[in-house]
Nucleic acid binder design. Structure first.
Lengths: 338, 338
DNA sequence: CTGAAAGCGCTAACAT
DNA sequence: ATGTTAGCGCTTTCAG
C-alpha cells in the first residue's frame, strides 16, 4: 500500500504538504502541487479512508438500514438515496436486516458512529426508543418514512401522508361509483399500515358509507400474500366490485388472483394500490395507484440526515414529504350496472 | 464517544488488557474480565471500527458493486451475499454504479483496499483490464457472475453456465414441438447475453433446425424493453409459437405484450426465460424458466473472495456455479395444431 | 496475567 | 509556502 509519506518523499515535501494538496487547492505553490500530483500518479497513491476518518473524527459514509432489500420498493429508494448521498459527497452503505431485529441492533451498534456518520432507518422491527438510545450514544438516526405526520416521533424523520394516500384511493373508487369495496391491509415489518387504512376508511365514512369489517383482510405485504388474501376475500365476499390494497405489491397479487378466479380487471373488479412502484406500470393491466414520491423522500431523508450530522443536538425535526398523487391506470373503472 | 482508554481507566487496567478481553477469551484473569466487561457495559462502549481497521490493517467489510439495484435480480443476490458475508463476520457494502462506469471507478478507487477488504463485481461497464489494475494495487476483486466458463478471465470468478441454460430452454421448447421460435436477447450493462443465445442456438442446430435471424431481437434487459421488443417481434413474425428470452425480465414483458396483443399464453404462444427471479413465480401465468441458483452463486462468490483475501497473490481461480435447472410452469405448452 | 510503548496513515494546529 | 509535531482509537509486540 502506498502511503502519504511515500508520496511526500518522492515529491520532496512533507506529508502535511501532500495532505494540503489533496484538499486545499490554495496555500501550496503551483509548482509543488505539480510535483505532488505527479508523485501521486506515478505511485498510484490512494488515500486510506480509515486513517482519514480516524484523524478527522468523521467518515464520509451514510448507512441505510432496511428490513429486506427484496421488497421491490426498497431498491427504488436505495437508488435515489445513493444518488443523493453521492451528490453530497457521501457513500451509502446498505444494511439489510433480513427482517431480524437482532441483526438490526448489531448494525446499529457497530456501524452507527464509526463506519457511518449517520443512519437512515426504514421500517425495521426495532423500537423507536431503542433507536433513540443509539442516537444518543452514537451517530444521528433519521426515520426515513414515518407514517404518522400527526404524531412526530422523538427522532428526526421524513413523514409521508399515508392517510391522505388512503383518502385519495377511497375518493377515486367512490367517484367511480363503487360501494362494495374490499380491503387488503399490509403488515410489513414496521407494523400495520394503519394510516393508509384509516385514511381510506375516514373518506368512505365521509361519504356516508362504511366498509364491512368482514371485507378487510390483514396480511403480509407481498405479492404472494396479496394473492392469497384476495382469493380468501373473494370467497367470503363474492360481490365486491373493488379492492383497495394498502400497498402495490398486494394490489398486484390481488390482480393476479382475480384473473385466476376468472374475474376480469377492471371490468368485474377494480383494484387500486399505494406507492407506485415501477412494477405497477409494468403489470397487465397497469395498476391504478396512489403515488408516493420515493425519490423526493429519499432526497429529503439524506438532506435532513446530513443536516443533523453537521448540526448535532438539534431538536428532532419532522419534514413532510410531497403529498401523494392519484395515478389512474387501467386497473380501475366504474362498476358494471346491476 | 467512549474510548478504550476510558474503559481501561474505569476497570483499573490498561488499554491493552481491555483489548485482550475484547478478543482473546484466554490470558486475562476471569476476575479482571469481569471488571472490564462491567466497565464496557456501564460506559456503553463501542469499538471504533475505523481505528481498529487502521491498527489491524484490514477491515471487516466486503463491497459488492452492481450496475443498478433496481433490476430485480440484484436484490436477491444482495440478500444472499449479505447473509453469507455476515456469517463469515463481514459487513457487506453495496455500491450502486447507476450504470455509470465513472461512478464504478470512483468506488473502486476509494473503497477497494481501504473501506472494504475486497470487492465482488457484478456486470458493470468497467473493462476487465481496468479491474485487474485495481486488483493489483488494492484489494482483491472477484467477478461474481462470469458468463464464459470456457474462457477463464484474469481475475478470480464464479462462472455460470449460461450456455447450458440456453440449451435447456431450447430443448424444452423443441420437445414441446415448437419450431417457429422467436428470441429476445438482452443487452444489459455488462454486454450482450451471448452465451445464453449461443447455447440456445446450438441446441436448436443440433436438432437440425435453425432460428430465423429475423426472429431475433436484441434489446435492453428489462420488462419494458421486453414488452416493446415482443410487440415488434410479433408484428414482424406473427406466426411464432414460442419466445425465448435470455432473461426473465424480458420474458415477463413479452408475456404482458402477448396478452395485450390478444394472444393467449401459453395456448397461442409459449414464453420461457432464464434466471428464475422471484417475480417469475408471481406473474400470471407463472413463468417457465431456467433457474440460476442465485443463492449458491452469491455464497460461492463471498467464500472465494474471502479466500482471496486470506491468501492473496494466488493465481486467479474460477469456480463453476451449480448447473442451471429447467423449471416448468404455466407459460409454455405444446403448440396448437395447424 | 498485565502494563508500557510503538505505530497504523492521516489531519491539523502551530512554527518557521 | 512548507515543515514539525501531536494526536485520532486501537492493536500488538515486548517487558515485567
Amino acid at each position: 500500500m502506498v502511503t502519504l509519506a511515500e508520496v511526500a518523499k518522492r515529491a520532496r515535501v512533507t506529508a502535511a504538504t501532500v495532505s494540503n494538496v489533496l484538499r486545499n487547492r490554495e496555500k501550496v505553490k503551483p509548482e509543488t502541487v505539480e510535483r505532488v500530483l505527479a508523485a501521486i500518479n506515478e505511485l498510484g497513491y490512494r488515500p486510506n479512508l480509515n486513517a482519514r476518518a480516524l484523524a478527522e473524527g468523521r467518515s464520509p459514509t451514510l448507512a441505510l438500514m432496511l428490513s429486506n432489500i427484496t421488497n421491490p420498493f426498497y431498491p427504488e429508494f436505495v437508488l435515489a438515496a445513493e444518488r443523493a448521498a453521492r451528490k453530497a459527497g457521501f457513500f451509502l452503505m446498505v444494511c439489510n436486516t433480513d427482517d431480524n431485529a437482532d441483526i438490526g441492533r448489531a448494525y446499529l451498534n457497530q456501524i452507527a458512529g464509526t463506519l457511518a456518520e449517520g443512519m437512515l432507518v426504514m421500517n425495521t422491527d426495532i423500537e423507536i426508543n431503542e433507536l433513540c438510545v443509539s442516537a444518543m450514544n452514537n451517530a444521528p438516526i433519521l426515520l426515513a418514512m414515518w407514517e404518522h405526520p400527526e404524531a412526530p416521533p422523538a427522532l428526526p424523520c421524513v413523514a409521508v401522508e399515508f392517510a391522505k394516500a388512503g383518502a385519495l384511493a377511497a375518493r377515486h373508487l367512490l367517484e367511480l361509483g363503487h360501494r362494495k369495496i374490499g380491503m387488503l391491509v399490509g403488515d410489513g415489518s414496521g407494523g400495520l399500515q394503519d394510516a393508509r387504512h384509516d385514511g381510506f376508511a375516514a373518506e368512505v365514512a365521509r361519504a356516508g358509507l362504511r366498509i364491512d369489517a368482514a371485507a378487510v383482510m390483514r396480511t403480509r405485504d407481498s405479492i404472494d400474500a396479496g394473492y392469497a388474501a384476495c382469493v380468501q376475500l373473494m370467497a367470503a365476499q363474492p360481490d365486491l366490485t373493488a379492492i383497495f390494497a394498502t400497498n402495490d405489491l398486494m394490489a398486484i397479487g390481488a390482480v393476479q388472483a382475480l384473473i385466476t378466479l376468472g374475474r376480469v380487471v377492471p371490468n368485474d373488479v377494480s383494484v387500486i394500490g399505494i406507492t407506485d412502484i415501477q412494477l405497477a406500470r409494468q403489470v397487465h393491466p397497469p395498476l391504478t395507484t396512489v403515488a408516493i414520491d420515493t425519490t423526493a423522500i429519499a432526497e429529503l431523508s439524506v438532506t435532513c440526515l446530513i443536516e443533523q450530522i453537521e448540526r448535532p443536538r438539534q431538536p428532532p425535526k419532522m419534514v413532510i414529504a410531497p403529498p401523494p398523487v392519484l395515478i389512474v391506470r387501467a386497473s380501475t373503472r366504474a362498476p358494471a350496472r346491476g
